[in-house]
Nucleic acid binder design. Structure first.
Lengths: 261, 261
DNA sequence: TGGCTGTTAATGTATAGGCATATTAACGCG
DNA sequence: CGCGTTAATATGCCTATACATTAACAGCCA
């Protein structure tokens, strides 16, 4: 079989549409095809790759989906300008994160209170009515060093089985990850000053910088599942994010980018 | 026409494969179909929706792409576990960011030096040899209030035309975004203490918390284009990220999730 | 000029069917 | 009885084809 195009080197065990997708993506990401440039129309690509129109169409649909190209009837498809710079930020499970550092992971449960939701709780869990909640405070350690301070609120109505969980082996986050599949979340990342409680737990000076990640997690039905604030000692921890196109290609992070400066 | 499945309420003007996609996505996101569960094979879905296999196949391909399902020949398709918790973090252009706050945007160029790369520069730009670089320091303002302090290094070999740019109307980031299409970037987000220079520029107390975003941008050919450190006054600024599945359905953020706790 | 209308080039959606392949089951041989 | 080899088959993957839809454009006509 002839390979009429650059044809993603090496990988012969790739399905056809994956190869085409990959080729076009490379051309765009490398800048060889500048934004605004017209992409060969379906019939062209079809001839180039000696494949059917459906296959090409499938690829272009996905690229359009990923906002790497724009398609207009009668005119054709065009490389789009990388507008919304969205980075893919991988926030691993804390346990895994510590393990990746080669440190032994432990955690301490500092507080565990079952109560009815206060006014503030209701806002955090996006709930109108009063509901039973579980408040947890715990400290994650890497070896003997404090790694992350966690303050959490769990909606007991949405996750009743959490009431029976003692969290002796598994931290709450990991437990939830295994118990509540497929949820939505929203993050707020800030740099704050450590308050007294946080500073004490993390064994740092009060008012020293802390990387705070607040996360509201809810199910597809929009009911709040949990709210958590994770506080990391500022200088010690960093979040790493990589820019990726809104993922047409497949595995997050394996390919690439969005204009980001 | 009969609707053999939940059939995304309301939208009658939806193409068939969109409806199928949406239906299956809902089933997965709602948790009704747990991770590991086998998805009806193409022939099943084909009968359920009274459509052809291609239609179903297209849908499943997209879902597989989005890593919501895994497909294996002969075995069938399965709901996958939301493993890598990747959030999509939209980092807008600073100018746009300020504009979104309803504030007038301005910026001041504080330093502009052309020189050959030092040892440190080379590391930041992922370059072996000595290259000419442009060092820029500038301050972004929202109204009269300092908004972000920017320290930047640009590879003059990769972007020679930047030498001619005066940056009177457009900040360097925006200029690069328009001049260098489709690049890769890597971010590091930390909470740090403001050093003397940063504190002075942002008009905050020295040692107060600062949200630092460091970004290495390179082209697809792995040559470093620019390195930038953006420092935001800690309490004032926050990054917002939303969890989303790697986007099968469409516009990022309109649908949903990845396990995140 | 200005607006209507038909033509046409491209994408969008869908059908029907054949090919390729990984897994499992059956088989046979020592 | 165990183990390697082969065949069956379920399933995903791809082709070929058709018609629908849209939007640009040219031409017509007042």
């Amino acid at each position: 079989m002839s390979t009429p195009r650059p044809a993603t080197a090496g990988k012969g065990a790739m399905s056809l549409h994956q190869r085409i997708l990959s080729d076009i993506q490379n051309l765009i990401l490398s800048g060889e095809w500048q934004p605004g440039r017209k992409i060969p129309v379906e019939h062209e690509l079809m001839k180039q790759y000696k494949c059917s129109r459906m296959t090409v169409s499938k690829v272009l649909t996905q690229l359009a989906h990923a906002q790497m190209i724009e398609r207009r009837r009668k005119l054709g498809s065009f490389v789009s300008r990388p507008h919304s710079q969205s980075a893919v930020l991988t926030i691993p499970d804390i346990k895994a994160e510590v393990a990746a550092l080669g440190q032994p992971y432990t955690f301490q449960m500092l507080r565990r209170i079952k109560r009815r939701s206060t006014r503030d709780d209701k806002a955090l869990l996006a709930s109108e009515k009063s509901i039973p909640v579980l408040e947890l405070v715990c400290l994650h350690l890497a070896g003997t060093q404090p790694f992350c301070f966690e303050q959490r609120l769990i909606n007991l109505e949405a996750v009743p089985q959490v009431a029976k969980e003692s969290f002796t082996t598994m931290p709450p986050g990991t437990w939830l990850l295994h118990s509540v599949p497929w949820s939505l979340a929203e993050h707020r990342i800030r740099a704050t000053e450590a308050n007294a409680e946080t500073a004490a737990a993390l064994e740092i000076r009060p008012k020293s910088p802390v990387l705070t990640i607040e996360r509201k997690t809810r199910s597809a039905e929009a009911t709040g599942i949990t709210f958590v604030r994770l506080s990391y000692p500022g200088e010690l921890h960093e979040l790493v994010a990589s820019f990726a196109p809104p993922s047409a290609s497949g595995h997050v992070g394996d390919s690439a980018a969005n204009g980001a400066f």
